[in-house]
């Protein structure tokens, strides 16, 4: 599903050049659950951003779903992104002014799903993450775990092929963290590919494969399953 080869990304300011990705090559197969680990500054987040089509690489190849996307422009990337990729962030990133229902509904609005369909699909997915009873609450009225479940619901409501998770349990206590991880596993079992950046060995163990990174390169890969 994802095949990146010799990917490079360099951040430049006037005086400093930071190599974030250094000829990185990774492959992720459809249906896989991959965890990416590594110390701060090793390039994990950059990688995730490029995988999420939020950022473009300086060099190298990125084949997504058999299409070369490394040179896609903003518009094409946005289009591909909204139909294929869901995001889960460490800090949930829910919109405070929208209710749980509306937050989850938003990606459907942007992909142009009809109102009646939207309602059905949002309810379905809220049911799945067991937050239906809070559908009319605002994010601030929920616990962290609940907020992250809403964020997961939002990520999957469009039935994306790929979910990118950036330390999804980073802001949660262990109980809530486990809940979210189980939810991710469940999604993976239903066929969604997941790539997750994490610091937590505990969380990483939910995945099939751990890629360890250092200084913009992969160091080791552990296959867990």
């Amino acid at each position: 599903m994802i095949k990146i080869t010799d990917l490079e990304k360099v951040y430049r300011t006037e005086e400093v050049e930071t190599v974030a990705l250094n000829k990185l090559s990774i492959e992720v197969k459809e249906g896989e659950f991959v965890a990416i680990m590594g110390p701060s500054g090793c390039g994990k987040s950059t990688l995730l951003n490029i995988l999420g089509l939020l950022d473009d690489p300086d060099a190298g190849s990125f084949i997504f779903n058999k299409i070369e996307v490394a040179n896609f422009n903003e518009r094409k990337r946005a289009d591909l992104r909204k139909h294929n990729i869901g995001f889960v962030f460490q800090s949930f990133n829910l919109i405070d002014e929208l209710t749980v229902f509306e937050n989850v509904e938003l990606p459907l609005i942007y992909t142009g799903v009809k109102s009646a369909d939207r309602k059905k699909r949002v309810e379905e997915v809220l049911d799945k993450v067991q937050i239906m009873h809070r559908r009319n609450h605002y994010p601030q009225q929920l616990s962290g775990g609940q907020q992250q479940r809403v964020a997961v619901a939002r990520a999957v409501v469009n039935k994306p092929k790929l979910i990118l998770a950036d330390e999804p349990t980073g802001n949660l206590d262990s109980h809530n963290g486990n809940e979210v991880m189980e939810l991710m596993t469940e999604l993976n079992e239903q066929g969604t590919t997941i790539v997750m950046v994490t610091h937590s060995e505990h969380d990483a163990r939910y995945s099939h494969r751990i890629i360890r990174m250092l200084d913009g390169q992969t160091v080791t890969e552990n296959i867990l399953v």
Partner: peptide, 16 residues
């Protein structure tokens, strides 16, 4: 900024 970029990430285009 956070809200706007989030909207973009989950699929809003410039026109929207």
């Amino acid at each position: 900024a956070k809200e706007i970029s989030l909207r973009k990430i989950i699929g809003a285009n410039k026109g929207g």
